[in-house]
Amino acid sequence: MKLTLLLPLLAFVALGVLLKSGIGKDPTLVPSPLIAKPAPAFDLPLLADQEQRLTRDDLLGTRYLLNVWGSWCPACQVEHPYITELAEGGELPVYGLNWKDEAGEAKRWLDYFGNPYRANLYDPSGRTGIDFGVYGAPETFLIDADGTVLAKHVGPLDAQIFAETFAPLLTAEPES
């Protein structure tokens, strides 16, 4: 009898613990199913010179960051100084995926803010973005030398997020 009287209290506490565990989490973050899988194959023209193309396999052998951006994207301006800092650090090459943008606008954006990217893939239709599961710029992927997606960050990148999300994966020697 005593125990059954306590049941509502216990249920309340259990519910409280369950709800507390959800506080502080971002419910809009979608975990990527691509982590630890091979990066989707891409074959796209370069933003700077659309006669030239770059494919996923061209980048095999290099561990790199793939940063998804667009000139229409305010949050991309927010992370731009940090992306520049990372690229200038030189430890990790940064490639850009110019997503759902217009080449003229994108080039003007780079002229104005500076171009930290080793090269920019030009994806105006957004099809390669869909292959990467991109649902909003900026997004940043860490891709290993063997073409495996190691990690993904959604939203503007900064030093703290880099240290938490990407840095621990960099201590391991690149495979192959």
Binding site: V30, P31, S32, P33, D131, G133, Y135
Partner: peptide
């Protein structure tokens, strides 16, 4: 779609 964006 699920391969790219997850079961979500």
């Amino acid at each position: 779609l699920a391969d790219r964006y997850g079961d979500f």
